[in-house]
């Protein structure tokens, strides 16, 4: 069954949040959803770019009180 996981990468800088997400994506199963939390604005732009480039799916992205929440789905 698909799982949902929070990846807390707050207070680190580029490319820390992206690398943390990739590490978790490697271990996830196809269909799993991961929500990455980042306080780094550059990463908030870079993560969806990476997800689209490698062919996974961005489900949601919003900012709340200085923290970006980006939810992605592992599709392959």
């Amino acid at each position: 069954m698909a799982e949902r996981k929070i990846v807390d990468a707050k207070n680190t800088f580029c490319p820390g949040p992206l690398m943390e997400l990739i590490g978790q994506m490697k271990m996830a199963e196809i269909g799993d959803e991961l929500e990455i939390l980042s306080t780094d604005k550059g990463s908030a732009n870079d993560i969806p770019e990476w997800i689209n480039k490698v062919g996974h799916e961005v489900l949601d992205s919003f900012e709340e009180e200085g923290v970006w929440h980006i939810t992605v789905k592992k599709t392959k």
Binding site: N11, T12, F13, P15, G16, M19
Partner: peptide
């Protein structure tokens, strides 16, 4: 600051 260490990257 909390920047990923270059060797780790």
């Amino acid at each position: 600051k909390n920047v990923p260490e270059f060797k780790e990257l």
